[in-house]
Design a binder for these strands. Structure first.
Lengths: 252, 252
DNA sequence: GCTGGGAATATGTCGGAGTAAATAGGGAGA
DNA sequence: TCTCCCTATTTACTCCGACATATTCCCAGC
């Protein structure tokens, strides 16, 4: 009770009420504001956000709060500040686009279709390979986790947050089964991004396909230990998701 | 070049010779110290870094500097602090292990061989696929960049920083040719990590193979537009690198 | 055993001192 | 007279310590 690690991060502690707001603390809100502004292109790489005091006054916050927000952006590679030169936006290739928070900022405004494409391409590379490894290395409890996620997906649908969480759990269980930390972290980031696109698809009223059978095929292949079949089934799954997303974005 | 940030510890009048120091500013140095401590396992997930003032006094810095360092770590998902409860180290799966700085911290001490293995496994998944895409989409200037990097690799060797930079440039040129931002960012992170392992191999005096011919094979396949051959050649390249690294770590 | 108040601790705020660096100005050499 | 270099000023970030606020844990009272 007292020494137990209750894993209450900042969002699960909240009643999941303001999940989509700026949330967090004051400097977090400022970081969100500036981050979305940068990601949306309002500040281009090379631009200078000059004037610590000016910004602090404009946002009606203290310089400390502004400074801590800049620290966050700096830690994510979005900006760099030097004593006299001011705080300048770094070139895109320095941005840590795989950071879940940065990804969220990227999808806060109008998501760039080129970037979404590249994310799905990456997913199409990583996830089938992960399914292949999972088929070779999965243990009993991995299969149980996948099965549980599948039943949850059946009960809810992808139109609900619970359903999307179950979807993430399914993919997460596969990643866990690969026994690969790097893969796990990477796909956690991608999963967050995919969740955004799924919400996006839902807003566009474009969820035509029933994704359950495809997921079941992946599960069966992994359970059977058939690496090639698992990779292929996951490949199909990702391709369909990409197709849906593309049509949804074009429709809009 | 552009990274002319030097540490301003006490009054070290070093002629900016120390390129691999903690770097950056005071709070950057603190973040480095705490980051390496966390990554090395000195602070386990769930541990509490209690006492903002205590830490600040122990490190002989002000609370602001300590706070900003915590902001950086928090932005990278290593810790989370809540009002009264203290600053807790988050579970590993929340860490942004693909952040270049975090990767650097992970390799600052004794690198975990399991983690290195998982990184190379990820690399073995991503880089061949990237070579495949590059073979399909490369333009003239991409090939020129690869060729330039190859000649630079020949002139210097991997034992020098310039040679390792050329190696990174080569892989970077391939990633650029994929026209995929997400891939580019990911492999920039991986490339930073691989650079660490290469330095590590060098320290262990284990660079037996001449990597140039293998790189040339990759280049030829991409130049010819042969996707399958490019993927296979890159596969060989990554496998050899993994083998070298493994033997170097076992030797040590 | 449950509830409410107080103590402890972390976050948010503030303004000032210190310092690094870019720009401008002046002087020397061609 | 023009160019180059050196120096001084100015500017904006960096660091600091104190104060105010909010939240949570602990414990006493019911």
């Amino acid at each position: 009770m007292s020494e137990a690690n209750f894993v209450n991060d900042e969002e699960s502690a909240r009643p999941a009420d303001e999940a989509r707001g700026p949330g967090r603390r004051l400097h977090g809100a400022i970081a969100h504001k500036l981050g979305t502004a940068i990601l949306s292109g309002k500040y281009a790489p090379g631009d200078i956000l000059s004037g610590e005091v000016a910004f602090a006054e404009e946002l009606q916050v203290s310089r400390s709060a502004y400074r801590e927000a800049i620290q966050v952006l700096s830690a994510k590679g979005l900006v760099a500040s030097r004593p006299k030169a001011g705080t300048r936006v770094l070139p895109r290739d320095r941005w840590n686009l795989l950071d879940p928070e940065v990804l969220g900022w990227a999808f806060a405004g109008e998501p760039d279709i080129e970037f979404v494409r590249s994310l799905f391409e990456l997913r199409a590379i990583v996830e089938p390979a992960a399914a292949r490894l999972a088929a070779q290395r999965r243990e009993k409890h991995d299969l149980k986790a996948m099965k549980d996620a599948l039943t949850a997906m059946r009960r809810h649908t992808l139109t609900t947050e619970a359903g999307r969480a179950a979807d993430r759990d399914f993919h997460n269980a596969i990643l866990q089964a690969t026994r690969n930390d790097a893969l796990l972290v990477l796909s956690a980031s991608i999963g967050a991004a995919v969740n955004w696109t799924t919400q996006f698809k839902q807003r566009a009223r474009a969820l035509p396909r029933n994704p359950i059978p495809d997921h079941v095929r992946v599960y069966d292949a992994i359970a059977a230990g058939d690496a090639a079949a698992a990779a292929e089934a996951m490949n199909v799954l990702v391709d369909l998701a990409l197709e849906d997303t593309r049509s949804a974005m074009e429709k809009k």
